[in-house]
């Protein structure tokens, strides 16, 4: 699954970041590295962007980017 498909409370382990160039570097710097664990926090009121927690900080990504970051669902928080 990709990050964009994640629902609030999902915990995803990143497998691949299929983005190139400056944006890839920025994402890596922010902690979106393969192996990293990402929590899906919440969608913006209009559905996009989505806020994720990665290495203890909250980062919002647009659909264009989050759809290209794939990983596996490792936990779902049913609150």
């Amino acid at each position: 699954m990709n990050l964009y498909e994640g629902n609030k409370g999902d915990r995803i382990r990143i497998k691949e970041v299929a983005i190139e160039g400056v944006m890839r570097r920025r994402l890596l710097d922010l902690g979106f590295v393969p192996g990293a664990i990402v929590d899906v926090l919440k969608k913006s009121p209009l559905g996009d962007p989505i806020a994720f927690r990665v290495s203890h900080t909250t980062i919002a990504l647009r659909k264009e980017e989050s759809i290209k970051i794939t990983g596996e669902l490792i936990q779902h928080d049913n609150e």
């Binding site: 920025r26 900080t57 980062i59 980017e65």
Partner: peptide, 11 residues
Amino acid sequence: VPTHYTLELPP
């Protein structure tokens, strides 16, 4: 001209 978007939501 290329575009990239990330936004930190600090505490």
